[in-house]
Write a protein that binds this DNA or RNA. Structure first.
Lengths: 150, 150
DNA sequence: TCATAAGTAGTAATAATTATTATTTACAGA
DNA sequence: TCTGTAAATAATAATTATTACTACTTATGA
């Protein structure tokens, strides 16, 4: 996943505004800034990381608002909460189907696409489980930086 | 994954004791009970859930010991911390390669095996990422109980 | 059996997240 | 454009999950 460029970001923000209106969510300055920051980020930030970045431009925003907004946006499917092994929750705005490689040393999360996995059939064992809405692969290991760093 | 029967459990516990000695971990009553409870469980319990179950048999155990022990056993690869979307960490003792289906309504985690996934080649995009040590599939959806429950 | 280092219980502290409440804001309708 | 109102926010307090500290206890090897 790459950073969105200036044009893409504008498109994303416009789409975001429309999605908010559709979901009966007021388009507040705070929500826009939080979404913008998350859409620009490439490191799956936590609520606290986002707060520390946003407060530079929006000095009165509260950490609570960041938490609340992330929860709201997640509920409406506008952002995603990323599964981690850490206690802090992390988020992403990338909605295109993708998967994660997680470094268990530094915690970095890298996005990648994996078509062959996307197309593998779910095992018969699960046919009676329920309704599956999403599938994700998580690869764990040590990223190059951490391998070298040793 | 099925419950281990009485015989399997004994084998597991013996293996556990050996693994502890190998790792220079003292074989304490508490560690045995925590591992036993986790090995018998089929619901990927949290530290608190385990504590509530164990305290019935071992009334003096502390929650801190459960947390500390789980962290120790995880560090030595004797148990696994399961990735979830919740804030509470959850654990499992199952060491055979398997994957998880998670109900996003009730949070239940179901184990399943998926050989075709295990054998799919990792995408070229990731060849420079680092050293991959583990791969997991996570399916998300609504389990049958929750579908019916509506 | 005994020494000792590791482990535990009990308690206190910290980190992450959520709730409460008074104030402010977005936005639909006049 | 102005205004009323429900929704959202900021500030603060409270909870929840986890970890740290300390004095006591126990597993293990000599």
């Amino acid at each position: 996943m790459k950073h969105p460029n200036k044009h893409d970001l504008l498109v994303l923000l416009t789409e975001f505004e429309n999605a908010c209106r559709k979901a009966d969510l007021k388009v507040t300055h705070q929500r826009l800034e939080i979404f913008r920051e998350l859409a620009q980020a490439h490191d799956h930030p936590s609520a606290e990381m986002l707060y520390n970045r946003i407060i530079k431009r929006l000095p009165t925003i509260s950490l609570d608002t960041v938490y609340r907004t992330l929860a709201t946006l997640e509920k409406h499917g506008l952002i995603t909460r990323v599964q981690t092994l850490e206690s802090q929750a992390r988020f992403e705005a990338e909605m295109i189907r993708h998967h994660h490689a997680v470094c268990r040393k530094c915690g970095a999360i890298t996005d990648f696409s994996w078509n062959t996995f996307d197309e593998v059939q779910v095992p018969a064992e699960l046919s009676g489980w329920g309704r599956i809405t999403k599938r994700n692969a998580i690869l764990e290991g040590i990223c190059n930086d951490c391998v070298k760093g040793n």
